[in-house]
Computed example of a mutant assay.
Amino acid sequence: MSSSTPSHFTDRVAIVTGAGSGIGRATTIALAEAGAHVLGVGRREQALRETARAHRNIATLPLDIREEGAAKAVVADALERWGRLDVLVNNAGTTAVMPLAETDRSVIADLFELNVTAPSMLAHAALPHLRDSSGSIVNVSSTYGHRPLPGGAHYAATKGALEQLTRSWALELAPEGVRVNAIAPGPTKTDVLAAAGLSQDAIDAMHDYERDRIPTGRLGAPEDVAAWILRIADPLGRHITGQVLTVDGGLELV
């Protein structure tokens, strides 16, 4: 563990969704290295195995969090293993390139099911145990949760919804000692665009376009985002709640 990594997670318990790759994998590993026991959740069993090999503090649960009863199953698994829950990281999500002229009802439904409904049900299932531990929820939004995205309006709308859930839950749960914050990454090197069905040429073109607009001149790395998830979930940060922290190299400023 590096000297810059928070060390206040020793023997804490965290759940991270979308743990098979990208930001979810980086966050799962970072929490484990900081001393937490981490349950990494995702749909791809082999990808989860690769994540788990990074640290002995990582356990995994292959499951689709959109399924009926999945949220309760995830929380029950963590409790059975470690007897408590301190942090829920709602990272799993999907995107879609869908201009208004190509709007498809099923795509809209899928976006909201994974990006809004599933995190809500996980937060609901985790809440009694986060009350007991004075724990926290970290939702992973996007720069496009609070700025327009031509050709991706419905994706942006789901992230805007997640940010509003973050603020509203924070206000609702503050008297009970549960903190709720969000991290909003900008363009980051993950496999989310490939998972959305874009060709490698389209992905490369989009990354080149985004890189040229980012003031720091580079795309984010999953580890950039994971570091800030740990900081905002740190148990010592008792006085920060209801915040959306953007980690995008200054993109939202231009």
Score class of each variant (00 low, 15 high):
His55Gly: 03
Met206Phe: 05
Asn115Glu: 03
Asn115Arg: 03
Leu114Gln: 01
Ala101Val: 08
Leu245Pro: 05
Ser168Ile: 09
Gly18Gln: 09
Leu173Cys: 04
Ala47Glu: 10
Arg44Ile: 06
Ala78Phe: 07
Lys72Glu: 14
Leu165Glu: 02
Ala34Glu: 00
Gly20Lys: 12
Val41Gln: 01
Ala221Lys: 06
Asp110Gln: 12
Asn115Asp: 06
Arg147Leu: 11
Pro99Gln: 04
Pro150Ile: 03
Gly160Met: 02
His8Trp: 05
Met206Tyr: 10
Gly186Glu: 07
His8Arg: 14
Ser4Ala: 15
Leu79Glu: 02
Ala156His: 12
Ala153Gly: 15
Pro99Met: 06
Arg43Ile: 05
Ala76Val: 01
Glu67Asn: 08
Phe9Tyr: 15
Glu68Gly: 08
Leu165Thr: 03
Pro128Val: 10
Thr10His: 13
Thr103Ser: 13
Ala174His: 08
Ser168Pro: 10
Pro185His: 06
Ala101Lys: 11
Ile58Arg: 10
Pro235Val: 03
Asp201Ala: 15
Gly20Pro: 04
Leu193Ala: 03
Ala78Tyr: 10
Leu79Ser: 04
Ile23Pro: 15
Thr28Cys: 09
Ala19Lys: 09
Leu111Ala: 02
Ile240Ala: 15
Pro6Met: 11
Leu63Val: 14
Ala34Met: 00
Asp234Gly: 01
Gly145Asp: 05
Leu63Met: 15
Ile203Ser: 11
Gly145Asn: 07
Ser141Leu: 00
Thr241Ser: 14
Gly135His: 04
Thr103Pro: 06
Val138Thr: 03
Val16Phe: 08
His37Ser: 02
Ala233Gly: 07
Asp77Leu: 03
Arg231Ala: 11
Val107Trp: 04
Pro222Ser: 02
Ala54Ser: 08
Pro119Ala: 12
Ile232Cys: 13
Thr216Ile: 15
Leu173Pro: 03
Leu127Arg: 12
Ala221Val: 01
Asp248Leu: 04
Asp77Phe: 05
Ile232Gly: 13
Val140Ala: 01
Asn91Thr: 07
His239Ala: 15
Gly151His: 07
Ala78Leu: 08
Ala182Cys: 14
Ser199Ile: 02
Val38Ala: 00
Thr241Lys: 07
Ala184Glu: 09
Val97Ile: 13
Leu122Lys: 05
Ala47Tyr: 02
Pro62His: 07
Leu149Asn: 05
Asn91Ala: 12
Gly186Tyr: 09
